[in-house]
Amino acid sequence: MNGPWVEKYRPQTLDEVVGQDHIIQRLKRYIEEGSMPNLMFTGPAGVGKTTTALALAKSVLGEYWRQNFLELNASDARGIDTVRKDIKNFCRLKPIGAPFRLIFLDEVDNMTKDAQHALRREMEMYTKTSSFILSCNYSSKIIDPIQSRCAIFRFTPVKGHQIIKRLEKIAESENIKTNPGALESIVYFAEGDMRRAVNILQASSTIEKEITEESVYEVVSKAKPRDVRKIINKALEGNFMEARDQLREVMVVQGTSGEDMITQIYQEVSKMAMEGLIEEHVYVDLIENIGKFDFRIREGSNPRIQLEALLTKFLLKNKQ
């Protein structure tokens, strides 16, 4: 049982981790010294934060890493109280066969400020026995007291040639052929996200034996949120109610995320501008608005309401 390639080919040691060399070097020094401050990994999705934390745990905790390592997700559906109870129960015990115990807390930026303050206290309480690795997408969403207690590591998007190298290795192990342009188009769509790159690679391999640019395109277009062009057109026609209903269907019933939707709207609008369906100044105006609502969504407002508001901007764009 190997699972999907993202798991099968997840780097197991720090040396295998791709594209974060400067971070890996500093982390290795902690291993040599046998002690570690609290760490914070920040950076976009799929750049190796979790992988690095797991690999680090294995090498710093040694043989008994499983017993001394706790992995938790802050945005876990079980609620923050459970997460904190788990941390308490785990930290109360002394490390067994390892220098200290390690807690990896993922997606800390999804915790409310109150919960973060509570977490801060726990981090202080167990400094003697335990060390924390916190991981988040945006360090700006983490309260200062936590940031000041952590050594902060900023993970960057994985570079194109590094992604290609990794994909080639996987392709070789899986015995699949890749056509030269194919990997490059995967890199384009992955946007520095290794998880997405590997997922596209595996999904493409299910289409044909040899991975081509076309199969990559097919995968990517299948993975996109559907009906976005239709929704935009309805709004441009001035039919707001139908556009809104369709948007709700896609977001509420199909569960497409606000970020995915707004990215797709941006791409469709760009495409429409290039196809000459939208005039330049209208295009610029729309981009201004897309950016504005994207920002509001990331700030933590209700993505659906924000996107509905974005749709109203299209209503006025059609002169007919």
């Binding site: 999907p4 993202v6 999705a45 979790t50 797991l54 992995e71 997700n73 945005s75 876990d76 559906a77 993922d106 997606e107 999804n110 998880r195 997922n199 596209i200 595996q202 999904a203 995968v219 299948k222 993975a223 996109k224 569960g255 995320s257 995915d260």
Partner: peptide, 13 residues
């Protein structure tokens, strides 16, 4: 090793 949200992002693949 992902949250529910990130796991869902992999659904299409």
């Amino acid at each position: 090793h992902t949250s529910r949200k990130v796991a869902k992002e992999q659904f299409p693949y």
